[in-house]
């Protein structure tokens, strides 16, 4: 693979990663949001595979397949199950409307660029230059988490953040050591399962997954 094509493919994967992340802000339909999340998982897997192909690293390629499988297959599957059980298919009344969220995302992109300055200065290179993309998705995920009122949207926000962190890890260092990578993936999977169970319980005890209903505890 030549340098030019490698960089081109890498950035294309990053672009898809960013686009899917931002589109989550736009859609209200929860099943569409989950579909976007699955696409983002694919983009992330592709990103790792491109890195692996360039570095001719079989282990990295396997990690890429694993990460892609987890984030494009297993996690969306769990969320679709939760959605089917929950019955509510739309994000109602987000705290910030879609138009404003999209403009906020633009500001977040600038912020991400500013934050990643030290990294780009330390090691300028094609992969490091893509780090702002990952950080933008991180901030967008955080924004989704804070402003959405459905349990499932919050889970997606959390997972967007996690995808972004994983992307950062692979862009900066081609991944953390394997033990940590395994631990991280396991933890994420378990966290989603825990949240899945809790969504179930919220529905059982509050009669819906609208988190505005959660106001038993306050000072």
């Amino acid at each position: 693979m030549t340098e030019a094509i490698y960089v081109q493919l890498l950035y294309l994967a990053c672009g898809a990663f960013l686009l899917t992340g931002v589109l989550v802000l736009w859609r209200r339909d929860l099943s569409a949001i989950i579909r976007l999340f699955a696409l983002q998982g694919l983009a992330l897997g592709a990103l790792i595979l491109v890195l692996a192909a360039y570095q001719r690293d079989l282990a990295l390629a396997l990690v890429g397949v694993g990460v892609g499988g987890l984030r494009a297959g297993l996690l969306p599957y769990v969320m679709r199950r939760a959605l089917a059980a929950a019955g509510a298919h739309r994000e109602t009344r987000p705290l910030v409307n879609a138009a404003t969220s999209l403009l906020v995302a633009a500001v977040l992109a600038m912020l991400a660029y500013a934050i990643s300055r030290p990294l780009t200065q330390l090691a300028p290179g094609p992969t490091i230059r893509a780090v702002p993309v990952a950080l933008t998705v991180l901030l967008v995920g955080f924004f989704v988490l804070v402003t959405r009122r459905r349990a499932l949207s919050q889970v997606v926000g959390f997972l967007l953040m996690d995808n972004a962190i994983t992307a950062t890890a692979f862009l900066t260092t081609s991944g953390v050591p394997l033990v940590v990578e395994l631990g991280v993936s396991l933890d994420v999977l378990l966290a989603v399962l825990v949240l899945y169970t809790l969504t179930d319980r919220i529905r059982a005890s509050f009669g819906g997954t609208d988190l505005d209903e959660l106001r038993e505890l306050h000072d």
Partner: peptide, 16 residues
């Protein structure tokens, strides 16, 4: 209800 709510907040905030 309270325990479920507390658990949800706990997992979400701490995981973030």
């Amino acid at each position: 209800r309270e325990a479920t709510e507390a658990a949800w907040k706990y997992v979400v905030i701490c995981s973030v």
